[in-house]
Every structure is written in C-alpha cells, then in structure tokens.
C-alpha cells in the first residue's frame, strides 16, 4: 500500500504542474468556458461514485453511493453540455464585418484576436 500511495503522490505532484502549464495563457473571453470545462472534467468523480456504489454493502453505503452517482452524473452531463453551448457561439463567425447571416459552416477562423494563441 505504501508503494501505491507514493505513486499517487507522484502523480498528484506532476498533475499540479501540468495543470498550471496547460492553461498558462487564456484570453479573458475564454475564462467562463474554461471554468465550465474544468468543472465538467472534475465530473470524473462519477467513476469513483460508480465504484463505490458497485462495491457497496448495506443500506448506508448503497444510499451514499446512489446519491453520489446521481450528483456526479449531473456534474458530468451538465458540465459538458453547458460548455459546448457556450463554445458553439464562437464557431463559424467571420472575422470581418458580416451583418448578413452568411456565416455558413465554413471553417473560418472561429475567433481571431491579437494576443490570442494557443500556449506553445
């Protein structure tokens, strides 16, 4: 078990660095979608909730697990769907003034802004 905890601690520490690195440069327009997206990702707690419910014994454990699965499912489903709805709005808009709704599904650069770029 000691080996296991040390492995997990290692994973934890490395993940902290990855977490900081991966979103170092975010334009403020994406703060809300990013918050919502990270919110969806921690919905992975559903995996834990399923294991707890699936290996539970007795009324108390099953009740706790059952509620946990419900809550976690809401988190996952809601999180990804809401994020997608937000991001959908950035899609397919012309960078130049285009009042007419001719914004077809042409893969026009969705959002172009100075100072914006994927972190390299």
């Amino acid at each position: 078990m000691t080996g296991s905890i040390l492995t997990l601690v290692t994973i934890f520490v490395l993940s902290v660095f990855v977490g900081f690195e991966v979103i170092s440069k975010v334009p403020s327009i994406l703060h809300t979608p990013l918050m919502s997206g990270t919110n969806a990702v921690h919905g992975v707690v559903l995996v834990g909730a399923i294991i707890v419910l699936g290996t539970g014994h007795g009324a108390l454990e099953l009740t706790l697990g059952f509620i946990a699965v419900i809550l976690a499912t809401v988190n996952v489903v809601g999180g990804f769907v809401v994020t997608d709805r937000m991001l959908e709005m950035f899609k397919g808009r012309e960078p130049k003034r285009a009042p007419a709704p001719e914004t077809t599904s042409a893969p026009a650069p969705a959002v172009e802004q100075e100072g914006v770029g994927t972190p390299s």
Partner: peptide, 13 residues
C-alpha cells in the same frame, strides 16, 4: 488535451 484546447479560441470546442 481538453484543458489545453479550452485555452485557445480555435481549439476550445
């Protein structure tokens, strides 16, 4: 990769 994608406008969705 999802978080990395979400940090840029083009890759967010």
């Amino acid at each position: 990769l999802a978080l990395k994608g979400l940090s840029g406008p083009k890759t967010a969705r």
